[in-house]
Amino acid sequence: MKAKVHITLKNGVLDPQGKAIEGALHGLGFDEVGEVRQGKVIELQVNETDEAKAREQVEAMCKKLLANPVMENYTIELSA
């Protein structure tokens, strides 16, 4: 299966990169832009056909390495 892991900063964690992007967008005239937060997406190929098992495995990867629970949240998207 393919897994897409979205990693975002927790609410309240300062995101200077998001702030810089926000400032640049305002500078370009996109006045409608409110708060900007930057995250990352990690795509994984998992050699597992059972969705529940794949989710469990990717969940373990997130906890062990992919995300830092001190400052980040993650969501997992699976597809065949």
């Binding site: 964690v13 300062l14 200077p16 990169q17 810089a20 830092n68 400052m71």
Partner: peptide, 17 residues
């Protein structure tokens, strides 16, 4: 040390970038 959870917290990107 913070990533290994031997110390609490995290070192983030410098506020001034």
């Amino acid at each position: 040390l913070t990533e290994a959870q031997l110390l609490p917290g995290a070192l983030m990107r410098n506020a001034g970038l």
